[in-house]
Design a protein around this nucleic acid. Structure first.
Lengths: 152, 152
DNA sequence: TTACGTGCAAACGTTTTGCACAAAC
DNA sequence: GTTTGTGCAAAACGTTTGCACGTAA
């Protein structure tokens, strides 16, 4: 059972780690496995809870450490949520973010809706013009607002 | 000396507090006084240091508390800096923000450069279209990048 | 066998909170 | 006189770090 459960995905994740120059470890596989399924941002603490629920045995500090390592390597993207939590998602699908000022919820805004090429080209050009010396080649756009739940 | 030093500005700040339904206190005056001068974002800790340098006697917890109160009242704007610090600026002049992913530096991008009306109208329209139920009437745009200092 | 990942516990920096006192209205 | 702000110290929270051990290559 266990071996049949850890065949294809296992191999894919091992390869991905190798591609990014990282060693394989069970915690890393578990973490990447979750990010592979859910295309949603998640905090270290919540990720740790989810891993525990799945029966994974790893420590919180390992989660923190690997989220950093994986982000630095480029496998994950990291940014500040609205309530002081650092949040991660996988870096594969380009999209912008909508952050609730009240509860900190982070919601994706897919390319097709907000990130049309013209807007980003303008933003990028203008920012570059003003922020000389900055490296903003990857336009990572964050809009703030108040989510439906918090409006009440 | 002291009374002549606290005439006009004092009165203006007292009035502003009253307008926003807040009581006057010496710490609040000192805090608003700083935000009135510098149109720059500042963290609670740095604000506390600056107040101490000016000879103001107030506690760090009072700074935190009042930054919250003043933000909630609408006198200040609050958002997450790049390194887990919450940062505040006064809410008077509309502008966007450029945040360094490495050191957390927050740089203003004035209206004229990045926030031209057309971009914001597009962003706003698109976000509204997608993020139904969200309240994003105040487009507060955050661009991420790496600042000149951290590029090396 | 060497370099790197892990777990634990302790430390850290930022922010919040409880309480007794003081000041504003 | 009542309501609200303050200072202090302690606690809470998210995150990092040091170290001894374990595991991948």
């Amino acid at each position: 059972m266990e071996s049949s459960n850890s065949t294809k995905k296992d191999v894919a994740i091992r390869q991905k780690l190798k591609d990014y120059g990282l060693r394989y470890s069970k915690p890393r596989e578990a973490i990447l496995s979750i990010f592979g399924e859910r295309k949603q941002h998640i905090s270290a603490e919540k990720l740790f809870q989810e891993l525990k629920e799945r029966g994974e045995e790893l420590s919180l500090s390992t989660v923190y450490l690997n989220l950093r390592v994986l982000s630095t390597a480029g496998l994950l993207r990291e940014f500040q949520g609205g309530n002081g939590e650092t949040v991660f998602d996988n870096n594969t699908s380009p999209h912008d973010h909508l952050v609730c000022k009240v509860c900190g919820t982070v919601t994706d805004i897919p390319l097709t809706y907000i990130e049309n090429a013209s807007i980003h080209r303008q933003l990028h050009a203008n920012a570059k013009q003003y922020a000389k010396g900055w490296n903003i080649d990857e336009p990572d756009l964050i809009l703030q607002g108040i989510c439906p739940t918090c409006r009440t």
